[in-house]
């Protein structure tokens, strides 16, 4: 009975706290981080209310442009065109890097391959290599997993690993990163790419070389921080300068030591 009463009271309170509503929209990569930060922030700040939605970096930025979000979370820097569009609309904006993300290339734990060069990755993802033995592994067919075409991670990986070439059309496109982990963990010949935060013991992260095989670096928060690991990218918040007053407390919270601790705890790379 007491539980029901407290439940009802909390409902009433929740419906009355209408104070500060912030909308955050955009990249699915940043989503889990923002979700966690928002959760903690709301706990620490009575009355604050944040709404977190995914949709992709592009969606967040266009939402910022047409005023349907307060913060656009993005896993890439604004494109020049987007910058121009915002400037043309007379909307001055601010950019804040809230964390870094390292993209890990993962394979099934039974795969004996433990390192690949960028060129080999490009070959695998564009369909040049079809069997693991072509890159020094066992005689098993390579099963390529990727994110969906509209994801920011898909684009980033295409740009920085595939040298802007198209993915092989037989690649399995997963609607979300979690699904890639799930599938790679149960598929022998699988290869996939995920944000460092998603790494679990069920999959094996590969060492990657960007200097044609001279040095291989394993993805880790340390290696991403000192820029040794090549496939890293900053994660951004974008907001309009005129909304700065409303947004600032939350953004400052994310950049504060407590907020950065959350970054680390969620598996992303903190700024310092």
């Amino acid at each position: 009975m007491k539980k029901i009463t407290t439940f009802i009271i909390s409902l009433v309170i929740a419906s009355q706290l209408n104070a500060q509503k912030l909308k955050i929209k955009g990249s699915d990569t940043v989503l889990p981080l923002t979700q966690k930060e928002a959760e903690n922030y709301m706990k620490a700040t009575p009355g604050a209310s944040l709404m977190v939605t995914g949709g992709g970096s592009g969606v967040g930025i266009s939402a910022l442009l047409n005023g349907t979000t307060d913060i656009a979370q993005s896993s890439r820097k604004l494109k020049l065109d987007e910058k121009v569009k915002l400037q043309e609309a007379g909307k001055a904006f601010k950019e804040v890097i809230i964390a870094h993300d390292a993209i890990s290339v993962i394979v099934n734990p039974t795969n004996k391959i433990s390192q690949l060069t960028r060129e080999q990755l490009e070959g695998i993802y564009t369909g040049k290599f079809k069997n693991w033995k072509e890159v020094g592994g066992d005689d098993i067919k390579i099963v390529v997993y990727s994110r969906e075409t509209s994801s920011g991670t898909y684009e980033f990986f295409k740009e920085h690993v595939l040298n802007n070439k198209n993915y092989v059309s037989s690649a399995l496109l997963m609607p979300a990163t979690g699904a890639i982990v799930q599938s790679v963990s149960q598929t022998k010949g699988a290869i996939g790419y995920i944000g460092l935060a998603y790494l679990t013991p069920n999959v094996k992260a590969l060492k990657v070389s960007y200097d044609k095989g001279k040095t291989y670096v394993a993805p880790s928060i340390e290696a991403a921080k000192n820029k040794k690991y090549p496939i890293t990218r900053p994660l951004y918040y974008y907001f309009l300068t005129k909304a700065e007053a409303a947004v600032k407390p939350y953004v400052d919270y994310v950049l504060s030591p407590i907020g950065q601790k959350t970054v680390l705890a969620t598996g992303y790379v903190p700024l310092k």
Binding site: D28, A176, G178, A179, V181, Q182, T200, N202, T266
Partner: peptide, 23 residues
């Protein structure tokens, strides 16, 4: 307002989230 909904939440939990095993 937007809301969360049970079927979509199940979809999210089954495919997204950083700790797929924990969720």
């Amino acid at each position: 307002d937007q809301v969360m909904a049970l079927p979509y939440h199940l979809y999210v939990l089954a495919t997204s989230g950083t700790q797929i095993e924990a969720s």
